[in-house]
């Protein structure tokens, strides 16, 4: 093979893989969708903000499940920890600055990530899944019993975030909360894009494929996965805090098994191991749920089930994963 061909071949892929055009396009798409959503559903911004909060949970789940191969059905524990922390500091301690509440949410999410990681990462496969389910039930029960702090089954109320940056009040239409959510999502997404392409992101992908091989390269899979769990907790904490700030109430459902399972369903729907997949899955699932449950309140769960079966059977890589595959095959064919 001639030198020129060699150099061309070596040169091609890196350009595509560096942070650059595709990432900016991705961020642009998020912002564009956010603007479209704002004008299309001006009376339903609360739903859109809720979608953003859940999208942050699903992104967080993607970090440990999609990128690291950890099986968990208890990921809402991290989201709920963030939500309760942001709510409690406001309702009980009068810390009402949204940025400060967010900081407490992030910290609580990270600590919950550390705790959950320390337990879940002790096992693999099915036992790992069982540990995660046990954890979410423990978190749920703890929040239920500590009712003087959390409001128990009545939910935590009395959350009163002050104006964002001292300028923008959280209004009745949810405009401030929505814009706040979009900014948070864009920031988190950009940071995560950097992380998944970093040496650490590469290490995690390798661990997912073969942890034994990674040990023989001198790296500790457990230490890396713990670190990812903490990052994942911080991301879920952002989602939880956003939920607490925007709805001004935190319920036990934010720490529930149902929410954990649904977030996994959304991730699989969009496609694991891809940040765009996580976003796609959340948006499609939540819109589908909203539209279908309004159209047919009795059979909407059946339709959600049918959608899932169709995706798993006909697009096993998820909606985004399958579409991306299809496009790259077409590009290669040309």
């Amino acid at each position: 093979m001639s030198m020129t061909t060699t150099n061309e071949m070596i040169g091609q892929t890196p350009v595509r893989r560096r942070f650059g055009a595709s990432d900016l396009i991705g961020l642009g798409v998020i912002v564009a969708l956010a603007i479209v959503g704002y004008f299309l559903f001006p009376n339903n911004l609360a739903l859109l903000t809720r979608i953003i909060a859940i999208a942050l949970l699903v992104l967080s789940l993607d970090l440990v499940t999609g990128y690291c191969g950890v099986a968990t059905l208890g990921h809402a524990a991290l989201f709920g920890a963030g939500a309760y922390a942001a709510g409690i500091v406001s309702a009980h301690y009068g810390i009402n600055d949204p940025i400060a509440m967010l900081a407490f949410g992030i910290a609580a999410g990270a600590v919950a990530g550390l705790l959950c990681g320390a337990v879940i990462l002790r096992a693999h496969g099915l036992p790992q899944l069982v540990l995660s389910i046990a954890l979410i039930h423990l978190f749920h029960e703890f929040a239920n019993k500590a009712s003087s702090w959390t409001g128990g089954s009545d939910g935590l109320s009395g959350i009163a975030p002050s104006a964002l940056l001292g300028l923008y009040e959280f209004d009745l239409w949810g405009r401030t909360a929505y814009v706040f959510g979009v900014v948070l999502l864009v920031l988190v997404f950009a940071i995560l894009r950097l992380i998944v392409r970093s040496p650490f992101g590469m290490l995690c992908r390798a661990i997912k494929e073969d942890p034994v091989r990674i040990r023989s390269m001198g790296a500790s899979p457990k230490a890396a996965l713990m670190k990812m769990y903490v990052i994942s907790g911080a991301v879920a904490g952002v989602g939880g805090a956003l939920n607490a700030i925007s709805t001004q109430v935190v319920g036990l459902d934010s720490l529930s098994f149902t929410m954990s399972a649904e977030s996994l369903v959304m991730l699989v729907l969009g496609g694991t191991g891809s940040l765009f997949g996580a976003l796609t899955g959340t948006i499609v699932f939540m819109f589908f749920e909203d539209v279908v449950s309004a159209a047919n309140p009795f059979h909407w769960l059946t339709m959600v089930g049918a959608l899932l079966i169709a995706v798993v059977l006909f697009a096993p890589k998820g909606l985004y994963g399958t579409a991306a595959d299809f496009l790259s095959r077409r590009r290669e064919a040309k």
Binding site: R17, R18, L194, S198, L203, A206, A219
Partner: peptide
């Protein structure tokens, strides 16, 4: 190979930067 090099140099835990750069 990049992962091995970065691991050897204690840089495999870096959260930012891409080895291609």
């Amino acid at each position: 190979v990049a992962l091995a090099v970065l691991q050897r140099d204690g840089r495999s835990g870096r959260l930012f930067g891409n080895f291609l750069a």
